[in-house]
Design a binder for these strands. Structure first.
Lengths: 111, 111
DNA sequence: AATATTAATCGTATATTTGCGATATAAGAT
DNA sequence: ATCTTATATCGCAAATATACGATTAATATT
């Protein structure tokens, strides 16, 4: 694409899109799932569970972290990750703000 | 990527990821917003609102339709679109199913 | 029938994402 | 000090996504 036009949309639209993008890959959903059930987890455990190479998992973790959806801190030679609940709360609220008005008039058919 | 490994994840993970991917671009968020406020809308109106070419908007609409998030029917030479609420309901439920368990133990810090 | 309007599709350029092996880094163990 | 373990980063290849202009298709209008 010649020029990306993402900047021409509102900040809220961009934020929501960025959040959605962060969870737009099954591997990242799966990672969040693991973190959700185990509450916290080191990279190696996730690598064992997912059908992906270590470097790939590390990359997905980085993306989730950049998006603010997970926190991570190093623990000796290991890296321990967990879900950033506040970020999820924030995005759920934004989602509802955007789409709840829709629910009201719901059920209406198209055109 | 040599081989895409998306199929190796569960159907639920893939579905959620596909939904997220559909709304992972600000233009598509903006389109949903327009449809949400106007309840229904023809392609041309959306083109006027968004800072994108007609062909690009048409492509985004197609993606949203393929993902099942909107319905569209032709009305003469026009195409009228609206949000598929049932699809949104479905995905909100799935989202909560995946992430509500997290909320319970919430507040817990990382590692 | 000819023309105008509206939207979808095609072709193409460029950017981004996904994935992996190899390498680097950093801390712990011997 | 050396070796092991765990993770991050680099470099590359292939796949996808984004955007647009040009064209096509399909319906209205004249």
């Amino acid at each position: 694409m010649a020029i990306h036009k993402k900047e021409e949309f509102t900040q809220k639209e961009q934020d929501l899109a960025a959040f959605a993008k962060a969870i737009s890959h099954p591997a990242r959903i799966a990672i969040l799932n693991v973190l959700a059930t185990k509450n916290e987890c080191i990279c190696g455990e996730i690598v064992e569970i997912l059908p992906l190479a270590q470097s790939t998992v590390s990359q997905h973790l980085k993306e989730l972290k950049n998006a603010g959806l997970i926190d991570g801190e190093t623990d000796g030679p290991r890296s321990c990750y967990c879900i950033n609940w506040k970020a999820f709360e924030k995005f759920f609220v934004e989602f509802n703000g955007l789409f709840n008005k829709l629910k009201i008039r719901n059920e209406k058919a198209c055109c």
